[in-house]
Amino acid sequence: MASRPEVIAPPEIFYDDSEARKYTSSSRIVQIQATLSERALELLALPEDDIPKLLLDIGCGSGLSGETLTENGHHWIGLDISASMLNVALEREVEGDLLLGDMGQGLGVRPGVIDGAISISAVQWLCNADKSSHNPRLRLKAFFTSLYKCLSNGARAVFQVYPENIDQRELILNAAMHAGFAGGIVVDFPHSSKRRKEFLVLTCGQRSVNSSVSKGKNEDGESCSEEDSEDEENQTVCISDRHRPRKKQKKNNKSGKGKEWILRKKEQMRRRGNAVPQDSKYTGRKRKDRF
């Protein structure tokens, strides 16, 4: 994920047969996705009654995230826009039911029946306008509104996301809040550019998120650490005020007009319907990718 796949092609094109296979056969990716899914499941804070739950996995791909749900005894329904990814999931004989669908079109699920939802490394895709008919704002709205409806009262949704920049994070968070969710962002390993992971933790209805779970990781929780040579602090910050991440980010980005700035501008131009050159790993290259 060094150069952002989101800017290369629409998901159903990017995740073709060969990419789907490549993705799923990388032991590094398998490991990372499993760790992220475990963490998301933990943040879901399901009742500890040992009764299997009915969960959604949004952007389930080849089933790496869903497998974690199965291992923890839950039933799940996975949605993905890439037929190739779902085919790999079939080959791997995942336990969940699979649906070919576009979360940006909203979920066709009955009200109040789902006990919780996770989405691992997928929602940032909604911030792109891949077709002229796509409006990221409307697609995010359709998604979060329909998700809110199908969750049972007090249920949570946890999204691990790779927002491309501050604007994207705001865009996603605002859409969630507008749909009625309460919640905020949990950041694990905030001081490491490689291991930093963001989770959007949302609650539907009554139960409030603030108090109980949203503590981030402050111990060494990941094992994919060959890449981490710097001696970083393994801390987590938990942000329930949605304006705080902006400040934090700003501090880190003192350097001025970097790649993020360029990409953001390009994205803005794109949203206005202008023709903008494709982003590549060379775009505004100066420093290493943050995400």
């Binding site: 009915l54 039911d97 649906l99 079109q105 909203g106 066709g108 699920v109 789902i114 329909s146």
Partner: peptide
């Protein structure tokens, strides 16, 4: 697809009022 899933799905087409079952 199991009937568990079928029982939760409804048609999501714009304008459809009762898309279930």
């Amino acid at each position: 697809m199991r009937l568990l899933t079928h029982n939760m799905l409804s048609s999501n087409i714009k304008g459809v009022v009762n898309g279930f079952p």
